[in-house]
């Protein structure tokens, strides 16, 4: 990311940010980007909500009474609860990594960036397991409205987590090579904003898709 007030050549000095608001342009831009992402996920979630409970045939997300028979729901709440905890843990690790970079503690930074990437990967692993399991149970992109909306919504989120894991690994490599000193705090902070935002989206998706019938 670049910004034109590098014209003044002050970018390396965080105490002297020469902008109209005194705030860094990259961070403002990233928040604006997050704002745009809010609408992206908002529309996907809105689609999911519009079609919630309107599938003409199974598999259904939750237990349903169809013609007096109980049809078991396909969602695996214990597994997803576990992966939800893992994603929250990764957020804690992320904020600790930022803290480490801010204070110039390279070992902390490496440890926690690694932990963030690891937890993110575990979350993705759970999602891959969940998707393949559903596929074998007969829930596909094509099977019904639930399949389409569920896979596209959670898959879109999963794609964001994947990008986040790559982002974290990049920062980890920089940290290991000693190129992530306190002067790079802002870069890590922005990475953190991305990571926490992806977590926040899961905080919305988890109840709406998994917990509420």
């Amino acid at each position: 990311m670049d910004h034109a007030h590098a014209l003044g050549g002050h970018a390396a000095d965080p105490a002297h940010i020469d902008t109209a608001t005194g705030l860094d342009s990259r961070k403002l831009a990233f928040w604006t980007f997050i704002g745009s992402e809010c609408l992206l996920f908002g529309s996907l979630i809105a689609t999911y909500m519009a079609y919630k409970g309107k599938s003409l045939n199974g598999p259904y997300p939750h237990d349903e009474m169809i013609n007096g028979h109980l049809v078991k729901g396909i969602l695996n709440i214990p597994l997803t609860s576990f992966s939800t905890f893992i994603l929250l843990m990764s957020s804690v690790a992320m904020v600790m990594a930022l803290n480490g970079v801010q204070r110039g503690k390279r070992r902390d930074a490496i440890l926690y960036l690694g932990a963030t990437a690891l937890f993110g990967s575990v979350f993705l692993g759970c999602q891959v397991y969940e998707f393949t399991h559903f596929y074998h149970e007969g829930l596909t992109l094509r099977s019904n409205l639930f399949g389409s909306t569920f896979f596209v919504l959670t898959g879109f989120h999963g794609a964001h987590v994947t990008v986040g894991v790559i982002y974290m690994i990049t920062l980890l490599v920089l940290a290991v090579r000693g190129k992530l000193g306190p002067e790079k705090t802002l870069n890590v902070e922005i990475a953190g904003l991305y990571w926490h935002f992806v977590d926040v989206i899961w905080i919305v998706i988890f109840p709406l898709v998994y917990l509420i019938k």
């Binding site: 403002l28 928040w31 704002g35 809010c38 609408l39 996920f41 908002g42 529309s43 909500m49």
Partner: peptide
């Protein structure tokens, strides 16, 4: 900067529901 689009996103979800 965050609250405005977050609010819009929420309104989209609530409106569609």
């Amino acid at each position: 900067i965050f609250v405005f689009p977050a609010l819009l996103g929420t309104l989209v979800i609530v409106g569609m529901t």
